[in-house]
Structures are given as C-alpha cells and as structure tokens.
C-alpha cells in the first residue's frame, strides 16, 4: 500500500495528473463533438435524400462493427496515406497522436450517438409534431422547440451510459502514444515492474470518474423527470 501511495507524489504524481487532464480533455471534447456529429448524422439521415441515408448508414455500420483500437490505429498510421490532391497542392491526413485521438473518438462516439438520436426521433409521438404543425410552427421551429428537447430527455440515460463507455475507451489511445492516463501509468509500470500498483491506481481513477459522470447523469435525469410523458 505504501508503494502505491508513493507513486502519487513527485514526478510520477505530476505525470499521472497530466495524464488525467489529457484523459478528461479527450473524453469531454470527444463526447461533445461526437454528440454534435451524431446529431447531424441522425438529422441528415432523417431529412436528407435517400443516398445520404445509405452512405451514412454504411459508415455507422463500419464504425460500430470494428474495435475502437483498430480504428485508432488505422487513423493514426493510415491517415498520412489518405491524401487529397487539389490543383497541384496535396493535403494528407497527418495528425499528431492527440489530434488523431480526438478525431477517432469523435467519429466513434458520433456513430453510436447517431443511433441513439435516431431511436429518440422515432420515439417522439407523431401527435406532438402534428400539434406543432397546427399552431403554425415550421419545420425548423418544430425541430428546435419540440423535437430536440423531447428527444434529449428520452435519450439522456442512454447518453450518460455511452459517455461512460467513451471514457474507458480513451485508454485504448495509449497504443498510438497519446499521453493520457493509461500511457503515463504504463511508463511507471514498465520502469519499476510495478504493474499491479500502477494499474490499481488506474482502475481507481477511472472508477472515480465514472462515478462522477453517473452522479451528474442522475442529477440531470432527476431535474428532467417532471417532463416525463404524461400518457403512453
């Protein structure tokens, strides 16, 4: 136990803290951008032309059908081979590990969130949208004022769950050398051959973050619970 606490001070402690900060940034930014991407994807699939729906559906299937580890690896190491030639100039998808981590997490989260939102759209009673139509709300106003808030309260529990999964997926990014929590802890483990101590710290920190997220989620749900559907 003393050796475990020993890692929390000095140089190691600072490294663990900076890893924690990076993990949180990856998690929060990836979740937020993923939410936006997922929402746009769901809207495009619902309101856009048929081919867009098919294309996005295929993307979602691929992302959901492959491990995040593989996606992160392909994005980071394969990105530089993805080049776009435009009038003599060429741009390649060369990213530093952190950028690749954010982008990968956003795409991964976006695929899952888009499915959540799609189910959320379908769960809104048709009559609520018809009521909006009869009082004169146009499509955009209906989306903004009725569909979006109703969907949010429907999918919130599932979103909290998904963001907890995303937090734990950030650990995968250590394989493309993103300096997040797991990466820092690996260094200590390798140096001192103290994997049990190091990974115990790792487990406790992730668990604490998940608890925090779960509590925030329950608080938000409690705030929203009075909006629950009056009938059905």
């Amino acid at each position: 136990m003393t050796s475990l606490l020993g890692y929390l001070g000095g140089e190691d402690g600072r490294n663990i803290l900076s890893g924690l900060v990076n993990t949180c940034v990856l998690w929060v930014v990836g979740t937020l951008l993923g939410t936006v991407l997922g929402f746009l994807t769901a809207v495009a699939r619902r309101y856009g032309p048929r081919p867009i729906d098919w294309l996005l559906k295929a993307c979602v299937e691929v992302i959901r059908g492959t491990p995040f580890l593989v996606q992160a690896y392909l994005l980071y190491f394969g990105g530089p081979y993805l080049c776009l030639e435009l009038g003599g100039a060429s741009a390649c998808l060369t990213l530093d590990p952190f950028e690749a981590g954010i982008l990968g997490l956003t795409i991964y989260a976006g695929a899952y969130f888009s499915e959540l939102f799609r189910a959320g759209f379908d769960a809104i009673p048709r009559g609520h949208i018809e009521a909006a139509t009869t009082v004169g709300l146009d499509r955009w106003q209906t989306l903004r004022r009725i569909i979006l808030p109703e969907m949010t309260m429907l999918v919130l529990p599932a979103m909290v769950n998904m963001s907890i999964l995303l937090l734990k997926e950030t650990a995968v990014l250590s394989i493309i050398s993103v300096k997040e929590l797991k990466f820092q802890v690996d260094i200590i483990g390798n140096r001192d051959y103290a994997f049990v101590e190091a990974f115990t710290i790792l487990a406790l920190v992730y668990w604490a973050l998940v608890e925090l997220c779960g509590r925030a989620g329950r608080y938000a749900e409690a705030r929203l619970s009075r909006y629950r559907f009056a009938h059905s």
């Binding site: 009559g127 609520h128 018809e130 009521a131 009869t134 009056a230």
Partner: peptide, 17 residues
C-alpha cells in the same frame, strides 16, 4: 389559411417539456 384553424386532438398532444 391554416392560421384560421385551431385543432384539438384525442391524445391532447401537449408538449411534455
């Protein structure tokens, strides 16, 4: 023309939020 019409539904259809 629609603005002249008000509609009431069987399922009330109030917005829950």
């Amino acid at each position: 023309v629609r603005a002249k019409i008000g509609m009431v539904f069987q399922q009330f259809n109030l917005w829950p939020h």
